[in-house]
């Protein structure tokens, strides 16, 4: 039975846009799928290989700009970005990894953070090429969200399957051994520098693909959006952490939770308080609704703190602990 769960989820996801035709929910699901790809990429380099990267936005932005610039300068379809975006991100990752993988732990994390910032500055300053802060605007190909939905779904499924494939191969075991003890791995004859490079390039490829899709779907990018430290790099880490570091399905769960929570706070509990305010007409409710949508990022930040404190290995990683906490409670309820 357990074997079929991913298949069942996949079928449900395929039928989703047919059943729920509300464009808003389809939009949310597309975002989830994009985050699944980014989160899976981050998980390969950080979760499995143990090299925590704070610079995923560099790859994401490179992918997005590849798609955008191809469309902008050569007037070809931005979908070509899906073909080249991943490789462009790898072209950024390769020299970066080559140089910076001699650094370890927090030093590598800082170097990746610097890469993120350098990329953002380059995209801002190189105006003839990237239009700087004006950003790049392209016309979306489809009016309906459904084609985007299936493309994003395909990307998400492919990245999860790909990560699973990699982790079951010899490479996967190399990655894990590097995470557990780099010196021991080295002394066992594993070329740690090479396999860290492989891992980083896989991560960059997946993230770059997600970036190219983002460009096609959103139709507009500027450096502050796609090279954002907080909205992309940190968010990618949170997707990985909340879902479960070093698990195959972790990023998928994390992406769903993060997007849901983000929307939950942003819309003020999905308009619950606004609805209450409209229903009761009381001023107090209206001000509560206003306050909540005002403080949505604050709620999000507090959630981050709580998750790191109490669920350090994420929902998938700490699943048994979570279930253990909920089930006794249920049993007690039934007994009483």
């Amino acid at each position: 039975m357990k074997k079929f769960i991913p298949l069942i989820i996949l079928i449900v996801l395929c039928l989703f846009p047919v059943v729920i035709q509300n464009a808003y929910y389809q939009h949310l699901m597309i975002l989830v799928f994009i985050w699944v790809a980014i989160g899976s990429g981050w998980n390969v380099i950080a979760g499995f290989t143990g090299q925590v990267s704070f610079g995923d936005a560099a790859f994401f932005g490179t992918g997005a700009y590849t798609a955008g610039l191809l469309a902008h300068h050569f007037h070809i379809s931005a979908w070509w970005g899906m073909a080249f975006g991943g490789f462009a991100a790898m072209a950024v990752a390769f020299p970066f990894g080559w140089i910076c993988f001699r650094l370890r732990g927090p030093y590598f994390a800082l170097a990746s953070l610097a890469l993120n910032e350098v990329c953002r500055h380059i995209a801002t300053i190189a105006e003839p090429l990237t239009q700087g802060m004006v950003g790049i605007l392209i016309m979306p190909t489809f009016l309906s969200k459904i084609p985007y939905y299936y493309i994003a779904l395909a990307l998400a499924v492919l990245s999860v399957v790909f990560v699973q494939f990699v982790m079951k191969s010899k490479w996967g075991y190399y990655f894990l051994s590097i995470r557990e003890d780099q010196d021991a791995a080295e002394s066992m004859g594993i070329d740690t520098h090479k396999y860290k490079m492989v891992s980083l390039n896989i991560a960059a490829f997946l993230t770059g693909m997600a970036g190219a899709l983002f460009m096609n779907y959103m139709g507009f990018i500027d450096p502050e959006v796609v090279f954002s430290l907080h909205d992309i790099s940190i968010m990618a880490i949170l997707v990985g952490i909340i879902g479960g570091v070093g698990t195959i399905y972790g990023p998928a769960v994390g992406a769903l939770v993060m997007v849901a929570v983000h929307e939950f706070f942003r819309t003020g509990f999905f308009g619950l308080f606004k609805g209450l305010a409209a229903m009761t007409g009381s001023d107090a409710m209206i001000s509560v609704a206003k306050t909540i949508s005002h403080a949505h990022v604050l709620g999000f930040g507090i959630l981050v703190v709580l998750v790191i404190l109490y669920l350090p290995n994420g929902i998938v990683g700490d699943w048994d602990k979570l279930v253990g906490k909920i089930i006794p409670f249920k049993k007690k309820e039934a007994a009483s």
Partner: peptide, 11 residues
């Protein structure tokens, strides 16, 4: 205990 030592940084 968690897999990544960088939890404090994230915190």
């Amino acid at each position: 205990d968690s897999i990544l030592p960088e939890n404090q940084v994230l915190m």
